[in-house]
Amino acid sequence: MSEAPKAAPKMLSLRLESKPIIYASYMSFVEYGGVFLPTNDTFQMGEQVMLMLELIGASDPKKFLLPTTVCWINSNPSAAGRPKGIGLAFGSDEQGIKAKNEFEAILSGLLNNERATYTM
């Protein structure tokens, strides 16, 4: 008996254009970093997603094509202003590490403050 072929991961794109949005979207508590993506689509924890990420908040805009994994789900918008969407964990691959480093360079000095984000 042969197994059914695996479906290709969903492809999503996210463009973050300002430092406040980059801060609210970044998931520093994830081992290799991650990002929150507002969406009304339905996802499962552990689902694979290919992400085209654009970071415009830096002096030199960056683009990354990242294999990610769903690690967080906001199933409904919250009273605290957290939108519906998913958190995507970066991997330990070269692109994931580069994306994590770019987020942390943009957010230097801001990562340990108590301002709310889209996930915490």
Rank of each mutant, 00 (worst) to 15 (best):
T69Q: 15
N74P: 13
T119H: 03
F43N: 02
E114T: 07
S28T: 04
I86V: 14
V30C: 12
Q95G: 09
T117S: 11
T119Q: 03
S28A: 14
E102N: 08
E54V: 01
T69I: 15
V70H: 13
G109Y: 06
N112S: 12
N74G: 13
G81Y: 01
G109T: 05
S92Y: 06
E102A: 09
A89K: 13
F36D: 03
A58Q: 09
M11V: 14
L55R: 03
E104H: 01
P67L: 06
A8H: 15
F103Q: 04
S78D: 01
E47V: 06
D93R: 10
T68W: 02
S18G: 09
L51T: 12
P9Y: 09
K10A: 10
F90C: 02
L65W: 07
M52Q: 10
G96A: 06
P9K: 14
L37C: 13
L51S: 10
T69G: 08
I86F: 05
P20V: 00
L53S: 10
P5I: 12
M45P: 09
E102W: 07
V30T: 07
A7M: 11
A80I: 01
Q44N: 14
L66V: 13
A7I: 07
V49I: 14
Q95T: 15
T39P: 04
V70T: 14
N101H: 09
P83Q: 00
T39D: 06
S92N: 10
L107C: 00
E114S: 12
S28G: 08
R115T: 00
M11H: 13
L65V: 14
E47R: 14
A116N: 02
L88Y: 06
Q95I: 08
K98V: 00
S13F: 08
A79K: 12
F43D: 05
A79F: 03
T39W: 11
A105Q: 12
E47L: 11
A105T: 08
N74C: 06
T68L: 07
L16F: 01
N112W: 10
L16C: 03
Q48D: 08
G109M: 06
E102Q: 09
V35P: 11
L55Y: 02
M50F: 08
E114R: 10
V30I: 12
I21Y: 04
F36L: 05
P77W: 00
L55A: 03
K62L: 11
G91R: 11
E54D: 05
T119C: 09
P61Y: 00
I21K: 14
C71V: 15
V35D: 09
A24Y: 00
E114N: 11
I97S: 04
L16H: 07
A58N: 11
P77M: 04
G34S: 09
L14T: 07
Q44H: 13
I97K: 11
F103P: 05
A79L: 10
A89P: 03
S75W: 10
L88M: 05
G34Q: 04
S18I: 00
E47D: 11
M1T: 10
G87L: 12
F90K: 09
M27C: 10
M50S: 11
N76L: 15
L55H: 01
Q44A: 15
A80V: 04
L14R: 13
R15T: 15
N101R: 11
K63M: 09
E114M: 08
L16A: 00
Y118P: 00
Y32T: 02
P77Q: 05
F64G: 12
S18H: 08
M27G: 07
T68N: 10
E94K: 12
M120W: 02
E3H: 15
I22G: 07
T39H: 06
